[in-house]
Simulated assay, not measured.
Amino acid sequence: MLSRIAESLFWIGRYLERADDTARILDVQMQVLVEDPGMDERTSCEQLLSVMGVEDYTGNPNRWMILDLLAHNPDSPVSIANALGACRESSRRARETLSTDIWAAINTTYRGLGSARAMRPPDMFAWVRNRSAMISGIAESTMSRDEGWHFYQLGRNIERVDMTARLMSTAALAPGPQVAWPTTLRACGAYESFIRAYRGIEADRQAAEFLLLDRWFPRSIVFALAEAERALVRLERSGRRAGFGDEAQRLLGRARTELEYRPLADIVFDLPVEMERLQRSCAAASDAVTARYFAESEDYAWQGGVLL
């Protein structure tokens, strides 16, 4: 497979997951602000911007600023609009390998952004999640399980780990965690699965444990790390050299085992710091994938909230 095509598929997976998870993070933030009127809106919005890596902004942060920076503004490198635009551009570069259905779904989603901006924020977030789920479902049913699929899955799961870590940091930093954690579980589509797993017990520690360590739930961090590792193993077997020589695989495996084999109390004691460390591991793994498979391509990475 051409490096250009492989890189495009990798970033299609990442951008699609980024748009989806940014919508989920914003949905959590808006619901927490509405349900806890005593919360300091400026402090909460500053924390969210920090979690998302946004440092360069002017004015006092409020809900309308974060909607602009993280949802509507196509020039903001961390916005939903920017991610969907970049996803469409990556799809255009890999047009010869994508099915007509995938291309049409991505292109229609991008074209629908103008109408989505006019929606109420909760409706827009739901629209982004539904369109992302539809595109993912089409990819699941129309893509051959070849190298292209593995690159798509690799990018998607690395991004899922990164963004779920940001989502958990947002919940941990919220002044009212008794509101933030159930809202976070619902945003991940995890609330019903969590209730079944813990037999109706609702507690912040258990919610964090579920989103971190559940091996069966597809949006948990451990599950996504394992899927990314499996994608790398399959790429190794599809024509690359044998043996454990993949730096990205080593980084992701170390991140997974540190979560699985450390006491949960140590992780949740300072969850935002642990999640920031996990984000750095994802960035390093992405750099390793780029160096190995896309050596002649432009390197994309999160650096201070700016996609370079």
Rank of each mutant, 00 (worst) to 15 (best):
N130S: 10
R186V: 14
A197N: 13
R120H: 14
A126K: 09
D204F: 11
E147C: 08
R215G: 09
I195Y: 10
I195L: 15
L173M: 13
T164W: 08
R160H: 03
W181C: 04
E159F: 02
S193D: 13
R156L: 08
S132K: 00
A126E: 05
S169H: 00
V161N: 03
W149G: 00
F194N: 00
M124A: 09
E202F: 15
G189N: 01
R145W: 11
R117N: 07
V128D: 01
R199L: 13
A187S: 12
R111K: 13
T109S: 10
M143T: 04
V161R: 03
W149F: 08
G148P: 00
R129I: 02
W216Y: 15
T183V: 11
F125E: 01
G137C: 07
R117T: 11
R129P: 03
W127A: 01
I201C: 15
T170Q: 12
W149N: 03
A139K: 01
A208G: 05
F125S: 06
A118E: 14
E159W: 01
G200N: 01
P122C: 01
I195P: 06
A190F: 00
T142G: 02
C188T: 08
A116E: 11
N130G: 05
G148L: 05
Y198I: 02
A180T: 10
F125K: 04
T142S: 09
S193G: 15
M168L: 15
D214W: 08
G137H: 02
R186Y: 15
M143L: 13
E202W: 14
R129D: 05
Y198T: 11
A207Q: 02
V161Q: 03
A208P: 05
A174L: 04
P177S: 07
I201Q: 14
A180Q: 07
A118T: 15
T170S: 09
G189H: 03
R111H: 14
I138N: 01
S144A: 07
S144H: 06
A174Q: 13
P121L: 13
L113P: 00
T109I: 08
L173G: 09
S136A: 12
A139C: 10
L173F: 09
S141H: 13
Y110P: 05
E147L: 13
M119V: 07
A208L: 04
E159M: 06
S115R: 14
T184S: 12
A133N: 10
A118D: 13
P218F: 08
W127K: 02
S144M: 15
D214S: 03
E202C: 09
R156E: 04
N107W: 02
G137A: 03
S136M: 14
A207V: 06
Y191F: 14
D162L: 06
R129Y: 07
W127M: 07
A187M: 05
F125R: 07
E147K: 06
N157P: 01
G114V: 08
R199C: 12
Q178G: 13
H150W: 07
A139G: 06
